[in-house]
């Protein structure tokens, strides 16, 4: 049975329908990349999985726990507070903006939840925190405060913090978007290793390289619906929908930009400015 079962998921903010009926399953050990233009609803979809957003329709089940369910009359029933907290213990989440606790050291950040939620004795939690920080390459930074760390380091502490709860599922919400590009690699490397160790992961990302290399499956979401999903290689290399193609053009074009700029410098300025795919891609992303 799938670890995550989402069906008919809908979410509106006021009159804006952000998710218009989303169905997907995640098997144990599977790594899924969720891609799509900004505003497509991919982050909202991820945040529904641990009920940081409360869906307005549909059903979510994680690890055989029903978190919310739409009744026949259209009303929503949610698991009670304690059950939601219990489910969240097993669902790690890493945020775009890290959200580390700024008044605590790296180690204190990592041990807070195991002590508070699982009653792990402090020495035990601390030993585990050091192991986890070691595993994300920050064994020497345990006593540093978040503001003393680079974005890439902070995000790796945030990953260690989530892992300290021994989750069965990890949610990643554009975790490299707020760090300098040269620091994204160290975060992606940690995620790749995590995937290799069999962690079930849902990864909202703009990193197509990661999606191609690490993800088992890719979901392309646009305007609140899953437009296309399948094995990473299929979706990324042979997309079957026009919107997927347009999006991938827009995103993948960014990578060879440097080379293009060089070409442009050699007198191909006009060509660079009127690339039709890029214009199409921009429209799609707006």
């Amino acid at each position: 049975m799938a670890l995550v079962n989402v069906s008919g998921l809908r979410k509106s903010f006021g009159k804006t329908d952000v998710l218009k009926g989303v169905d997907f399953q995640v098997e144990r050990g599977e790594v899924i990349s969720i891609i799509g233009p900004s505003g497509s609803g991919k982050t909202t979809m991820l945040r529904c999985v641990n009920l940081l957003e409360r869906p307005t329709g549909g059903r979510i089940e994680v690890d055989s726990r029903v978190l919310c369910e739409e009744q026949a009359n259209g009303s929503m029933t949610f698991a009670d507070k304690a059950a939601i907290r219990e489910a969240r213990e097993h669902i790690g989440m890493v945020f775009q903006r890290f959200n580390l606790f700024p008044h605590m050291t790296a180690v204190e950040n990592v041990i807070e939840a195991p002590i508070a939620v699982k009653n792990v004795p402090k020495p035990e939690a601390t030993a585990r925190a050091h192991e986890l920080l070691e595993a994300v390459g920050l064994g020497h930074k345990g006593d540093s405060y978040p503001m003393q760390l680079s974005g890439g380091q902070q995000q790796r502490v945030a990953i260690a913090r989530a892992l300290a709860m021994d989750p069965t599922l990890m949610l990643f919400d554009e975790v490299t978007s707020a760090v300098d590009p040269e620091l994204a690699g160290e975060i992606l490397l940690v995620m790749k290793r995590l995937a290799e160790q069999g962690m079930t992961m849902l990864v909202v990302t703009h990193e197509m390289g990661f999606a191609a290399e690490v993800a088992d499956r890719v979901l392309f979401i646009d305007h609140g619906r899953i437009v296309e999903q399948g094995p990473a290689a299929d979706v990324l290399q042979n997309p079957s929908h026009e919107r997927t193609k347009a999006f991938l053009h827009a995103v993948l074009d960014r990578a060879p930009m440097e080379a293009e700029v060089e070409e442009a410098a050699e007198g191909l300025v006009d060509d660079l400015l009127v690339r039709p795919e890029r214009i199409g891609g921009d429209d799609d992303g707006s």
């Binding site: 641990n50 940081l52 907290r85 219990e86 969240r88 213990e89 669902i91 790690g92 989440m93 945020f95 903006r97 959200n99 580390l100 606790f101 700024p102 008044h103 807070e112 939840a113 508070a116 939620v117 945030a158 913090r161 989530a162 709860m165």
Partner: peptide, 27 residues
């Protein structure tokens, strides 16, 4: 205090009374 702090606490399964005392109020 950044709402992301409460979100991170909630995502970790912390109860509100706990994270108000440990995370939000100190900041």
């Amino acid at each position: 205090v950044d709402p992301g702090q409460a979100e991170a606490s909630e995502a970790l399964g912390m109860a509100k009374a706990r994270y108000m005392r440990r995370i939000i109020i100190p900041q």
